[in-house]
Design a protein around this nucleic acid. Structure first.
Lengths: 209, 209
DNA sequence: ACTTAATTTAAACAATTGTTTAAAACAATA
DNA sequence: TATTGTTTTAAACAATTGTTTAAATTAAGT
């Protein structure tokens, strides 16, 4: 039962859910309290303010968000397999946490937010050696000359957007939840094949020196 | 000068900007009033309530959002050219209105929102004959057998996400605005080539039947 | 000029916001 | 048991919320 958790952790867990689904400005202190079965004063007793609590939770969500990405790049696989694996992992993560990309993108585009430091995550990825893998594959002419920003964008666009846009696409195409789920599963395969097919064209385009 | 507009239109124009960038729950009635140079009472005098004003604006934003998409499908072009054109148009639209996809997706995923009817836009697209074009191209084996949902998802994922995720990617890769702009331009070409290359594979996969 | 209607303003409304207070309940230790 | 310190509660705080009122101003038509 959830009551085995401490009050502090109950509030944190509930607040995470509420913040993710409604955003910082979409919920109130009392709503956060009620969602954890506590009262308003307790929220501020443990976390000082709504804003402090949010900052704390946003940080942890960001870490979860990048965790699997880093772990995949750190794995001992050829680049092409890493990318297939990454897409698979992203879809698995998003199936569990479909609201997180929207939440993060939203809160990051608030002008008035104390923006979180992400500078530490890039070096971690770079240290996995994935850059060297890409450069080598490109030298051999096996891989298209796309930089890390381009690769990142390709992968997360095609993975995250379909989850974020669920209400839009469902509404637009008149789909049930089950139908959309099927489309997502189908789409994963297409995305994987498309991206791999693009980045690693069957016939080498050119061998730049 | 903007003062040539009527009070009602000044409020509407300012509210559109504010709603799009801060969302319904991210702004106040007084903020909407101040942004148009008016006062709170005038907002409710012309639009009855904050919610009514929002509903009105959301509707018009949605229409702008689908306008170019429909117009491209209605154009007299072969399917492959339509898709190239669509991507080009999407990028042009998003360069002008980079905040709109996030705004729409956000507001559509609010549980408590009176959801807008989109059922009229799908028939419009279907009536352009694009479906028949796709089926024919697929019969000839020129095009992969991907349905309308899949095509839609591919295009708008790769177009919209890079604009939505600007703060995330900028932060992650430590890019300046100018650098990100360059990446966007570069990405457009990649996306177009990738999607076309995937949907219309150079060597016909198989001729079903 | 007079009357009527439409527009704009300042002020007020009750409800809700984030946050704090001070007392109560609890737990641990002596 | 008495005395700590910690946790929880109910109530209050001023500020802000969406909305309304009623008076003031402007515009239009006679």
């Amino acid at each position: 039962m959830a009551s085995s958790l401490s009050t502090e952790e109950k509030i944190k867990a509930a607040a995470k859910q509420v913040f993710i689904s409604k955003g910082f400005s979409g919920c109130t202190s009392r709503e956060l309290a009620k969602a954890s079965g506590m009262n308003v004063a307790l929220v501020n007793y443990y976390f000082r303010s709504k804003n402090k609590l949010f900052q704390l939770i946003f940080q942890t969500v960001m870490e979860e968000f990048f965790e699997s990405m880093v772990s995949v790049f750190s794995s001992d696989l050829p680049l092409k397999e890493k990318l297939k694996f990454l897409i698979e992992r992203e879809y698995a993560f998003l199936s569990k946490h479909p609201e997180i990309p929207r939440f993060i993108i939203n809160e990051l585009s608030r002008k008035d937010t104390d923006l979180i430091e992400l500078t530490h995550v890039l070096p971690v990825i770079y240290n996995t050696g994935v850059i060297e893998q890409a450069i080598e594959a490109q030298k051999k002419g096996e891989m298209r000359r796309v930089d890390m920003v381009g690769i990142t964008l390709l992968v997360i666009s095609n993975c995250q957007y379909p989850f974020m846009a669920k209400p839009l696409i469902k509404n637009l195409h008149n789909l049930s939840d089950e139908q959309y789920q099927q489309h997502l599963e189908l789409h994963k395969g297409m995305v994987s094949e498309m991206i791999i097919g693009y980045l690693f064209p069957p016939v080498p385009k050119q061998n730049k020196k």
